[in-house]
Nucleic acid binder design. Structure first.
Lengths: 187, 187
DNA sequence: AATTTATCTAAACGTTCGTTTAGTTATTTG
DNA sequence: CAAATAACTAAACGAACGTTTAGATAAATT
């Protein structure tokens, strides 16, 4: 046979993901990706097909990246307190290196809301659906909440999470902390 | 002299604004604007300089459009209840004709958050600053709130407003109503 | 070591973008 | 009515986009 790839696909997907995360899909050009991933356009296309394929792969990579956080959330036994902790965990990456902003899934959801790309929208919808089911599960741990309250609070928290991810792109850590605390004050 | 313009600048700016509102700045092309505004590229450029100029003019137009809502908010005497009503007023355009989504100012703030366009960012910052001042003013109407609580609640509401505008792009009227009600439940 | 073949570089592809320019049309004024 | 000139149409501009292709390079097999 012939020479081997001089890069690891997982490594370069991680770098692509970070760039998409920071700038969004449209605002990230192949030229920027080339530079950030450290490999040539040809290599990107032979590994991922096209920009769209690379983005989908980045989304998958993101999901595995946050799966630990999600599992921790899923396994929690403290009801509402687990949800609150999940909110904190979700935006913790904002204040680490790399300048990632908000939640990649939510950002993508927003960017593609007017778009017709069903493949990506399906990915988002399933992710949001899973999240809602988990939130409901945690809320139901409090036996004093009736079903109607659970649904209302779940919708509230889902929108709050959505809003948080958007706001996290432009607000300070202190503002975000105040926001989360206030959100959970009366649940 | 020579012939007069066959269009009214205010009319075509309104149409441009609606398109920007729906799609955002980058996703709105001159070709789309040409079609929506009903005039030629040449006319757009002679009236507004360039795409950026047209967008700034659309933002100004948006501000005058929402000035009535803002004035109503400013003149309110019911404290927190005024803020809540303002939230409802802010997203009411979502459920009218035209498919506008969320709040143009907030959408712009989000789209340009990673951008270097200081002119637009300044416009956004001043708008947000005014809003925060008004919210604080209304919160202070309740004499029982100490200064620290007022600041915390103002930050909370500002982020909630931000999140609401983002979420309003993708959620139903019922979900949004639930969200607003829950947001104000304990202020 | 020679041959094979996948991976690399780099240049070019066709489109679309925002923008400009040349030429035509129509209205106002003398 | 004729001259002047602003507003119009339509075509073309260079730059950047995502994508493809041709040719050089290097590693694995015989």
């Amino acid at each position: 046979m012939a020479r081997k790839k001089q890069y690891n696909e997982d490594d370069v997907v991680e770098k692509a993901m970070n760039l998409f995360w920071k700038n969004g899909y449209e605002a990230t050009s192949m030229q920027m990706l080339e530079k950030e991933m450290g490999i040539n356009k040809f290599s990107i296309y032979s590994s991922f097909g096209n920009k769209h394929g690379l983005f989908l792969e980045s989304l998958k990579h993101y999901k595995t990246k946050v799966s630990a956080t999600l599992l921790k959330f899923k396994n929690g036994t403290n009801g509402v307190e687990d949800i609150k902790q999940f909110f904190y965990d979700s935006i913790s990456s904002n204040f680490k290196v790399g300048n990632q902003k908000g939640c990649l899934v939510t950002n993508t959801y927003n960017e593609f809301s007017e778009n017709e790309d069903q493949l990506i929208k399906d990915e988002m919808t399933s992710f949001m659906g899973n999240l809602k089911a988990l939130i409901i599960e945690k809320l139901q741990m409090d036996a004093s909440k009736d079903e109607d309250t659970v649904i209302k609070q779940a919708n509230y928290l889902l929108l709050a999470k959505h809003g948080l991810a958007a706001a996290a792109r432009v607000n300070t850590a202190q503002e975000i902390e105040d926001y989360i605390e206030m959100t959970f004050k009366n649940l």
